[in-house]
Simulated scan of single mutants.
Amino acid sequence: MTTSPASAASDPVPRPFRLDGRVALVTGAGRGLGFEMAKALSAAGARVVINGRHAGRLEAAAAALTRATGRPIAIAPFDVADTTAGRAAIAAIVAEHGRLDILVNNVGARDRRPLKDFVPGEVEALLAADLVGPMLLAREAAEHMATHRHGRLITVTSIAAHIANRHDPVYTAAKAGLGGLMRALAVDYARAGITSNAIAPGMFATETNAGLVADANFSAFVDIRVPLGRWGRPEEIGAAAVFLASDEASFVNGHVLVVDGGQSVRM
């Protein structure tokens, strides 16, 4: 179990799924699933740094998370597609906290259009945000984690990595690429004490999906397609991140944890 000396003194029976003393960076955490995973990691005892491109939104999110968990939340505003900024941010986190134990690569842009509608440069820009940026950020994080012989690389993919929808080819390709990346990192970094796993969310009622949630026809589709008959609630993603980040998942490596209400297994 992961406990800090202070928590161990006050709690003689270590509790499972605790992250006391661990430092986590969650990208794309200004809202939505990233926000909820950051909240869950903080509530489990981790020192959490949230990332996004907009400092104002991050500051508001950090304040809300602090109110919810009673723990301070730091911010690291940068664009994940900017590899220089990502490297500098991780170096700053390590300088401030002495370590980085958990990286949740959550950020992801989406552009639902047929492939024929993309013009030169648009595919590359989307892949830079959704695949290349997270890949290089994981590399930077792993280099620091290896010095402590401990780390958790958690990649947020999607059920779109396994089942495709119409008119969404670039996002689907990027998420499938992240799944392959996660497995490669699971092999490459395991002997350094670093595990690599993924969370594949299904349809969640986030701010991004608000229009679809309000669409009665689409919600009727959700009722049919998802065995549980509903959208996922954003807060239902947090425990998956805590589990994969915890010592209880120390022998889980190269796994995709699907959180989709059963959608991806329904005929």
Results as ranks from 00 to 15, higher is better:
18 R>H: 08
37 M>D: 04
19 L>F: 03
42 S>T: 02
83 T>W: 09
3 T>N: 12
179 G>I: 04
51 N>T: 04
68 A>G: 03
172 T>C: 13
149 R>V: 05
6 A>Q: 12
259 V>S: 00
225 R>S: 15
157 T>F: 00
58 L>D: 04
235 E>N: 09
165 N>K: 14
169 P>R: 07
111 D>F: 14
149 R>C: 13
172 T>I: 11
42 S>E: 01
42 S>N: 02
78 F>W: 10
7 S>C: 10
261 G>P: 05
89 A>K: 02
133 G>A: 07
253 N>S: 12
191 R>T: 15
66 T>Q: 15
184 A>D: 11
43 A>T: 00
198 A>V: 08
261 G>Y: 00
258 V>C: 02
33 L>A: 06
188 D>G: 11
218 F>P: 11
114 P>K: 12
219 S>F: 03
121 G>A: 06
257 L>K: 03
2 T>D: 12
68 A>N: 07
170 V>A: 01
130 D>M: 07
77 P>N: 00
132 V>K: 09
267 M>V: 13
107 V>Y: 03
196 S>L: 05
15 R>G: 12
179 G>L: 04
179 G>Q: 13
69 T>P: 04
96 E>S: 10
155 T>D: 09
179 G>V: 07
108 G>F: 00
118 F>Y: 15
248 E>Y: 05
52 G>N: 02
207 E>A: 08
197 N>L: 07
219 S>V: 12
64 A>E: 09
169 P>I: 11
107 V>P: 11
245 A>G: 05
157 T>P: 01
32 G>M: 00
208 T>A: 15
28 G>Q: 05
106 N>I: 09
65 L>A: 07
29 A>K: 00
187 V>A: 10
215 D>S: 11
191 R>A: 15
25 L>P: 15
40 A>F: 08
41 L>I: 06
171 Y>N: 06
226 V>R: 00
114 P>G: 13
167 H>P: 11
190 A>E: 13
139 R>E: 14
135 M>G: 15
63 A>K: 06
226 V>G: 00
240 A>L: 07
69 T>W: 14
237 I>K: 00
151 G>A: 03
125 A>Q: 07
46 A>V: 04
183 R>H: 09
206 T>G: 08
39 K>H: 12
95 A>K: 08
109 A>I: 14
267 M>N: 14
80 V>Y: 02
203 M>D: 10
232 G>T: 01
100 L>W: 09
64 A>S: 14
44 A>E: 00
124 E>A: 14
91 A>W: 02
266 R>E: 12
162 H>D: 15
218 F>G: 09
199 I>T: 01
249 A>Y: 02
228 L>A: 11
82 D>Q: 05
261 G>L: 05
183 R>C: 03
19 L>E: 00
181 L>S: 12
220 A>S: 13
124 E>C: 07
160 A>E: 15
261 G>C: 08
98 G>L: 08
150 H>N: 14
91 A>H: 09
231 W>I: 10
252 V>T: 14
140 E>M: 09
12 P>T: 05
125 A>Y: 03
181 L>R: 11
244 L>E: 03
158 S>W: 05
107 V>L: 09
195 T>K: 10
